[in-house]
Structure formats: C-alpha cells, structure tokens
Amino acid sequence: MLASLEGAVISAILVLTAMGLSIVFGVMRVVNVAHGEFFMLGAVLAWVVTTTLGGHPVFGFVAALIVVPVLVGCIAAGADRLILKRVNYDPDRTIVATIGMLYIIQQATLMTYGPEARPVEAPFNTRLSLPWFEFGDEGFQMIWPWGLSITSYKLFVIFAAIAVLIALWIVLTRTKIGLIMRATQQDSDTAQAFGVPVGKVYSWVFGLGAGLAALGAVLVVPIQQAHYLMGGDPLLLAFIVVIIGGLGSLPGTVIAALLIGMSDGIISVFFSPTLAKIIATFLVAMVLVFRPQGLLGRAPS
C-alpha cells in the first residue's frame, strides 16, 4: 500500500516528463534526446528561483512553479528556432543536434551551477497517516498504523500532476490551440495550406514539451535534490514509457507511466536494482523490435 503510494508519486513525475516527450514526438516527429536535460534545467532553475527570492518556502516554491516551466519552455523554443528549424526536422540530424544540445545544457550547468547536489525546501511537509481497514476481534475496524504515512507534499504532487493532465487534455481536445496541434500532427503540409503557421506551432510544441519536463522537475526537487547529471534517468524512463505506450499516443503514455512507476518498486523487491534495470531495458528493446508501434499504438497505415 505504501509502496504503491510512493509509486504513484514516481508515476506522477514520470507522466509529466513522458507527456512532454510524447507530444514533441507526436506532433513534430522529433526524438528529443535533450529532454532529460530540460528536466534537469527545471530542477536547477527551481533551486535558483527559490534561493534568490528567499522568504517563506511557499512563496518561493509557487514562484518557481510558475516561472521555471515558462523559462525552460522559452529556452527550448529558442533552441528549436535556432537549431532544429535549420535542419528541417530531418530525423537523423535532429537526433544528432539534440545530443549536442544535451551536452551543451549539461556542461553549461556544470560550469555555472557546479557539481553539487542542492535541495529545495518543500513548501509544506506534514506527515499524514493513513487509515487501514482490518477485521479484528470487534469486527471490521479502522486503525492508524505507525508505518503507513505519507507527507502532505507527496500527496500534493500526485494531485498536481492529475490537474495538469486534465488541463492538458482539455487544451488538446477542446480548444483551438489543440485543434491546430492535432492538425499539424496529422498532416503538416495540409495544415500549412490551410493557414496554420506550422513553424510557430513547432516552436510552441517544443517549448511546451520542455516546459512539462521542467514542471515535473520543479515538483520533484523538494523530494530529490537538484544535480547537473539528474537528467539521465528521467530521459531513459520517459523513453521507455513513450515507447511502451506507443510513440505519440497520449492515453498510452499515461497508462505506461502508471505501469512503469508502480512496477518500479515492485520489480526491485524481487531483483537487485541492476538486474531489474537489465530486464527492463532489454524488454523495452524487445517491445520496440516486435511491436514498433508500442503496446497501445496503432500500426502506421
């Protein structure tokens, strides 16, 4: 029960990160290898914002929550304009270019922020214990066991992720922005012919994808410290999620994120962490070999 709540927190962060990767791939057909670095940038900037503002942690955190994703989104959109647009979104060359971006962002952070891991204080952090139902001597009763508790902050992360997902879903399916994005995704040439500014849409989408990763990172820094190499694991996990869910399929991404986040804890109960990683990595490669469209994706027509 507790493992599954911790798993839900992991899933919540993962779903935001993977969603960013998935949207970018879905709309632009770009595999963004630098995605993990946008995540890292979000965490580092969250530290910068909260320490410069000082004051009460809630104030700094809320400011970071608003400012950082926008900032990272702008950086990503700028990178899109400056680099990806110029290589015409050619699949091979964008991969190479985003690998280059990965090193630039990571090493630039190392030069400015330094190699230390730094914590961000959680805005609120009370321990809540959870009820547990049990059949005792007096029939069905509710007890409050000592070990079963979660901090209020972690609960907040879960609900925040759900709220963002719902907002994202509404934007994608109910608004004109979503319509434009879906039109670009289906056929960018036709969309262009109908007056959709495809270039601008691409920049916005790339910024949105990076912003989602940064948002996930801002949420995670009170739990996990900000470090310049922290982008590697989220990138790999987000890749795994997006592949299993089906490249570009948003509902698939959500389900896969839940699956991976929840099973992460469970697999590591049975195997050593390295063996668990080996199995997971190999299985994902196999999924891609035999079902390139992912578990829930549709085969390309």
Binding site: V96, A97, G100, M111
Partner: peptide, 21 residues
C-alpha cells in the same frame, strides 16, 4: 582550461549538423 570539456563536443555536434553535415 575547463572540466566541462564535453561542452566542446556538444557545440561541435550542433555546429556540424547546422553547417557541415
């Protein structure tokens, strides 16, 4: 000059894809 020598690798990759594929 710097510990962040991989930055050079990154810049080289980006410049290559842009100007000398």
């Amino acid at each position: 000059y710097t510990d962040a020598y991989l930055l050079i690798a990154g810049v080289a990759l980006v410049l290559l894809t842009l100007f000398a594929p």
